[in-house]
Design a protein around this nucleic acid. Structure first.
Length: 786
DNA sequence: CATCCCCGCGCG
DNA sequence: AAAGCGCGCGGGGATG
């Protein structure tokens, strides 16, 4: 099938459909209609239409790579003939042809250079109209993104510079043999310097972790040298690295990694070291692309430099220790080079405020990771025994139950209490319970709620839930603490944090995830006793009060909500009390749900339920039915409460509507701090993203401020030690200085730092010798502009 | 053996 | 079809 049309822009589809095949032309039918409907009319006479594969594959399947390849010669000819300057690539099939391993839902709307035959041109991927049609056409959640990308393509295509592909080769990497030689190369470079290191382990505090090689590049000159590589250890490698990164501004792809290795290596050797100011290409890329992922240096280099940097050496980062030094050095050097070049491409092209916040968080978060947390090993051992015992008992009890014995006899296999599949089959097929199927329809649903609904006091269900709970306590929360002393050189617990991974730029924590240690039930909270203050210190937590509600109030500028906050009302407690007034029977449900017996504790648990399952849920778009199910309130009661709620907060309701409109118009949403998110978003994420993202920025700003103060004053107590989204925890001296520290931190955290703030921020301060038994000491409320 | 997904569940 | 959002982790199972 020949190309249709005449002009300098190629619309490149996947493959002809049936009608298109018969009529010998591209993009007819519904998909073509939808595509044409979003292309500005004046552009039509410059369009050339063609498909990646020129013949229709049977049954409308995706073309194979071989078929795609076979047609590429024709495509080259079309491009040369029409002097095509840019390709609007429609859907995932042509995208994968030019950017291997990428995903259209992640990369739509991003131009990158491609080499097709002799020609270098821009490729701009957009969603496929058939994907949009499947989701409901112009009512689909994908439609705003589809339309916005195509509009922006035509708006910008004539302003784009000529695409270029960086000429990079591993022969560019110089291999100095001495400190003197390396220094003379580095001194010929121009700031800022791209820097990259290869290491034997992911984190510097792990036992046996070493920097094996290092590399520096300014985009023209690049050099790489061994530090502590098994083949060759230099006595100058580390010193040179520390010198260069303290004397010159530097750039890294994920600077937190480099920062924590540099600082940690210096401190371990008692070297006085202060890193120079730095930039982070991962942060640039994260903000430039306005969506999560797309962080990988290889993809970034492919998009921004035209070269997949990792493909040039054939070294795999995951098994770096398996390669000879002669392979590692060029690999290391090219990463530094790519980082230096990407920085220069993106410098000045990302929003300053969010970018600076990420750079600051590199320091504060690295310091948090490096500092680690003291643990009580004896307590951990006791808890391990306690929960192991509970697990054994629950499993033994389950094994005697009729359904399980029948399961094992009938199937002649052992019934496994930890396999949801076995649990479902035993209950539904060898017992008489009705269980829903899971989302994929593959198994019986056996989650807590479903089992409880099926039969609240079935002995097998009780045993399974007890076992699951005990197993989770041990494997997820206790065992990482037991393992910590053998893993880390200082014997402390070092949860790791990532700063750029999440959709809203919240931090996330891993190994272990310190952000999800149990808190809501008494029994679960006991696990927090494993995290303790070292002697002479106290754990001191500062928790932002109702942070997301305050932000939604600012975003919506809702009078009722703002006034309620300014009056200092506890909105979750108020709605809990309203509900208990209307429906006193709910008390029993709260008693059962919380497992508490004291009135105060039950009220607190009730507040938490209403907070997460009604107030927050409603603010983020939950339906009345879902709120009713989650809180355990009867539907009519929930309906009544909900009506009153929205009557009161009509401003929030209007803001929610406005958010949906903004997404429909632009395919993007933004936080109050200017962080954009441009990707396919289901309706309720459109609401959640601005709120959660703004809250994350507020907390990060406080974290960064405290950390900067700690470095400036040379007072390590001021470094936050834990970040849990609305909570910063510190380890402070338990002496006469404590009140001043608390006052300083509390007042700093609630300071008004944003022009959109029309209600105050507030924090509650709690202290304890362990992380479970924290007592309230004071609150701080900040200023605000109204 | 490594890697991915599913399921379930802890936190904000 | 969508059902509040955001995370990480462990066990089981399928895949290569």
């Amino acid at each position: 099938m020949p190309a249709t049309g005449n002009g300098d822009i190629l619309i490149l589809g996947e493959a002809p459909g049936e009608n298109e095949d018969q009529q010998n032309t591209q993009f007819i039918g519904d998909t073509g209609k939808l595509l044409r409907s979003v292309i500005p009319g004046r552009e039509f006479d410059r369009l050339v239409w063609q498909n990646t594969v020129r013949c229709r594959p049977p049954d409308n399947r995706d073309p194979t790579p071989r078929e795609t390849h076979a047609c590429s010669l024709y495509l080259e000819r079309d491009i040369a003939e029409h002097k095509i300057k840019a390709v609007l690539g429609v859907g995932g099939v042509p995208l994968r042809r030019y950017l291997d391993g990428s995903n259209i839902t992640r990369i739509h709307g991003t131009k990158f250079p491609v080499q097709i035959g002799e020609h270098t041109l821009w490729y701009f991927p957009v969603l496929h109209p058939s994907f949009v049609l499947r989701g409901g056409g112009d009512r689909s959640t994908a439609y705003p993104v589809f339309r916005a990308d195509i509009k922006s393509f035509f708006k910008q295509v004539d302003k784009w510079p000529k695409p270029t592909i960086a000429s990079i080769s591993k022969d560019d990497v110089l291999l100095p043999q001495s400190a003197k030689e390396a220094l003379s190369i580095i001194e010929r470079m121009r700031e800022p310097l791209g820097v990259d290191i290869e290491t034997s382990a992911l984190r510097p505090h792990l036992v046996g972790a070493k920097i094996i090689t290092a590399a520096i590049s300014d985009g023209k000159l690049t050099c790489a040298w061994p530090v502590e590589h098994p083949e060759h250890t230099t006595d100058w490698g580390l010193d040179l690295l520390l010198y260069a990164t303290s004397a010159f501004r530097w750039i890294a792809h994920n600077a937190a990694f480099e920062y924590s290795w540099f600082v940690s290596s210096a401190r371990q050797r008692s070297i006085d070291y202060e890193p120079a100011s730095f930039d982070d290409t991962m942060a640039q890329v994260r903000l430039y692309h306005e969506r999560e992922t797309l962080l990988d240096l290889n993809i970034a280099s492919r998009i921004h430099l035209g070269v997949a940097i990792k493909g040039l050496t054939g070294v795999s980062a995951k098994q770096i220790m398996a390669y000879p030094l002669a392979d590692v050095l060029p690999y290391n050097g090219l990463d530094a080079l790519a980082s230096a070049l990407i920085f220069r491409k993106l410098d000045g092209k990302v929003k300053k405020e969010p970018y600076q916040r990420i750079l600051d968080s590199v320091v504060s978060t690295s310091e948090m990771e490096l500092a680690g947390l003291p643990i009580d090993l004896e307590k951990a051992k006791l808890l391990d025994i306690k929960w192991a015992d509970k697990a054994i008992q629950a499993e033994a009890a389950a094994k005697t139950i009729y359904e399980v014995r029948t399961f094992e006899q009938a199937r002649q296999t052992e019934w496994r209490i930890s396999a949801p599949d076995d649990v479902g089959i035993a209950l539904a097929e060898y017992g008489r319970l009705e269980l829903k199927k899971t989302k994929g329809g593959k198994q019986y649903s056996t989650d807590d709620q479903e089992l409880h609904k099926a039969s609240p006091d079935h002995p097998l269900i009780k045993a399974v839930l007890e076992f699951r709970n005990a197993a989770k306590m041990r494997s997820t929360y206790i065992s990482p603490i037991l393992a910590a002393p053998a893993l880390h050189i200082d014997g402390l617990l070092h949860p790791g944090y990532t700063t750029m991974l999440t959709a809203t730029l919240r931090l996330s924590s891993e190994s272990p995830n310190i952000q999800n240690y149990p808190k809501r039930t008494k029994e679960g909270r006991e696990l927090r006793e494993m995290v303790v203050a070292s002697s002479g210190l106290l754990l001191v937590s500062f928790d932002f009060k109702q942070l997301e509600v305050r932000i939604e109030a600012c975003a919506a500028r809702d009078n009722a909500l703002c006034s309620s906050i300014i009056r200092g009302e506890d909105i979750h407690a108020i709605w809990r009390d309203k509900i208990l007034d209307i429906y006193p029977d709910y008390w029993e449900r709260l008693v059962e749900k919380s497992g508490e017996s004291e009135e105060k504790a039950i009220l607190k648990a009730g507040r938490d339920v209403i907070k997460s399952d009604f107030v927050f849920a409603s603010f983020y778009g939950a339906t009345v039915g879902s709120c009713a199910e989650r809180t355990g309130l009867p539907f009519p009661i929930m309906q009544e409460v909900s009506n009153e709620f929205w009557g009161m907060f009509s401003g929030v309701r209007a803001w929610i509507k406005g958010q949906r409109r903004e997404y429909a118009d632009t395919g993007s949403v933004r936080t109050l701090t200017g962080l954009m998110r441009h990707q396919i978003l289901p309706g309720n994420e459109v609401i959640n993203t601005p709120i959660q993202g703004t809250a994350a920025a507020v907390v990060l700003e406080a974290q960064n401020t405290m950390s900067q103060m700690a470095l400036k004053e040379r007072d390590p107590f001021l470094h936050p030690r834990i970040n849990i989204h609305d909570d910063l925890t510190f380890l402070l001296p338990d002496d006469e200085r404590l009140p001043q520290y608390i006052k300083l931190i509390g007042e700093t955290m609630v300071k008004c730092r944003f022009d959109w703030q029309i209600v105050p921020l507030a924090v509650d301060c709690t202290i304890g010798t362990d992380w479970a038994n924290m007592e309230y000491v004071s609150s701080f409320t900040g200023d605000y502009v109204r």
